[in-house]
Write a protein that binds this DNA or RNA. Structure first.
Ligand SMILES: NC(=O)c1ccc[n+]([C@@H]2O[C@H](COP(=O)([O-])OP(=O)(O)OC[C@H]3O[C@@H](n4cnc5c(N)ncnc54)[C@H](O)[C@@H]3O)[C@@H](O)[C@H]2O)c1
Ligand SMILES: NC(=O)c1ccc[n+]([C@@H]2O[C@H](COP(=O)([O-])OP(=O)(O)OC[C@H]3O[C@@H](n4cnc5c(N)ncnc54)[C@H](O)[C@@H]3O)[C@@H](O)[C@H]2O)c1
Lengths: 205, 205
DNA sequence: TCGTGCTTGTGAATGTGAACGCAAGCACGA
DNA sequence: TCGTGCTTGCGTTCACATTCACAAGCACGA
């Protein structure tokens, strides 16, 4: 048994690799070397080789990585080889932008349901979904949905999460500026745009 | 001279500390210990002490950190002690959500101008700003604006950035999924929501 | 004025990830 | 069939970040 823990940083880069390989496929390039790929992504070639080698030997020495099959491998690793459904909670400004964003399709991630608690929003259509009442969040249990995107105000985020935890949700993308307490079985990624913008002035001369 | 390079990871946490201290101030708590703060932010106490100590000794042994003055110190470190203006390029779905988001105010970050290239958007009002023609991006040179938020399609992002580089912009928050080539004087932070969501299925059992 | 208790500040140790350099080994042509 | 050139895979080294452990030192009360 040659088990080795895979660095989180490697996992974070995998979708970038998948995107690159997907694009290469549309360009009809059938192999790519680590140095060519590194140039595209602005990484170092050894970084890419090490990352991919954590999951096995995908490349051919002297040639490079076969585009199509490596893309399939990465999709399998990330569990993106089957379409994944996500629920969006919070149909506000940011939620609406996300609901209409076509860019998730590249990863076969689909927003399959939208919930809000504002009566004026419930029943309206955003993208291909009708906004439903957050009280009925239980209905997603029957829908094979395991991802959630959270675009509600920070002070209500925790209560929404508590509800999601009972609905087989296993991954949450949290867009509000708060810590979320979740059972260990749920993975949370928090993105706080204001905080990211707040670091920038520091680097100015 | 006791110069020491400050870890990037420390800088990333500073806005979090600033937010916490700002909130504590509104709660009329005048000192806080590293362990109390750690509990709020779900960090380890030594992490907080080390981070803050990179910038000097703000705390009092036996007591903790004085809320008001430490907040001021952090604001100074992050250059958020003076209001910072940002320009938003791309008044689409995501851009509009950001333009109307009040959460930047906590850090005294203000969106002072919005640009787009779509004639149907130019002239319309979003939040407190009128959308202007991207051709006139030069006008920001006179406005003391050094931050930019980029919410344009990935394939036009680089051309917009080339224009911004001539306009005294020193920091860019890039929301599209692409690498941006910039002079060394400009700091870029890229956030790709699709990529972040794409990592989540990996962690599912 | 002095002692006690508490929390900071910080060097040292540990852990984690990035970069390097080279042996392994496939493809291809002679 | 064998040699050459190229690129991977990976052990090792290096750099960075986190955690630990404890001395330093302020506040407060006796
Ligand atoms: N808009 C941005 O650019 C931006 C930037 C950074 C962070 N954020 C964060 O993203 C989150 C959403 O931002 P927004 O601008 O879309 O806010 P918003 O107020 O426009 O939308 C919030 C939505 O959540 C709904 N909601 C409130 N409580 C709910 C509940 N208990 N259950 C279900 N739905 C509920 C509201 O009805 C509303 O539709 C906030 O936490 C905000 O801090 C937004
Ligand atoms: N909406 C989301 O949830 C989401 C999520 C992740 C990433 N993104 C990324 O953010 C960016 C914007 O997304 P969006 O959903 O707002 O797209 P959008 O198409 O709604 O908006 C893009 C805007 O940019 C403008 N534009 C195009 N070229 C321009 C130019 N040269 N100069 C100035 N303006 C120009 C367009 O007129 C449009 O108003 C895209 O790169 C997208 O990939 C969006």
């Amino acid at each position: 048994m040659n088990y080795q823990k895979i660095p989180d940083e490697t996992i974070k880069r995998m979708p970038m690799y998948l995107r690159a390989f997907s694009i290469l496929k549309t360009e009809n390039q059938d192999t790519i070397s680590s140095s060519q790929l590194a140039e595209r992504l602005h990484l170092n070639p050894p970084q890419i080789r090490k990352d991919l080698s954590y999951f096995g030997a995908f490349g051919t020495r002297g040639v490079g990585y076969p585009v199509a099959s490596t893309a399939d491998q990465i999709r399998g690793i990330l569990k993106l080889d089957v379409p994944q459904k996500a629920v969006l909670v919070g149909a506000g400004r940011l939620g609406a932008a996300i609901a209409e964003y076509p860019g998730f399709a590249l990863f076969d991630l689909n927003i399959a349901a939208i919930f809000d608690n504002d009566p004026s929003k419930i029943g309206t259509k955003i993208g291909t979904n009708i906004v439903e009442d957050i009280e009925k969040i239980d209905t997603i249990k029957a829908c094979d949905i395991h991802l959630a995107i959270l675009a509600v105000p920070a002070d209500t985020a925790q209560s929404v999460v508590d509800g999601l935890a009972d609905c087989h949700i296993k991954g949450i993308l949290n867009l509000s500026a708060c810590y979320l307490a979740v059972p260990k079985s749920i993975k949370v990624v928090t993105i706080d745009l204001a905080m990211e913008l707040g670091t920038l002035p520091y680097y100015m001369m």
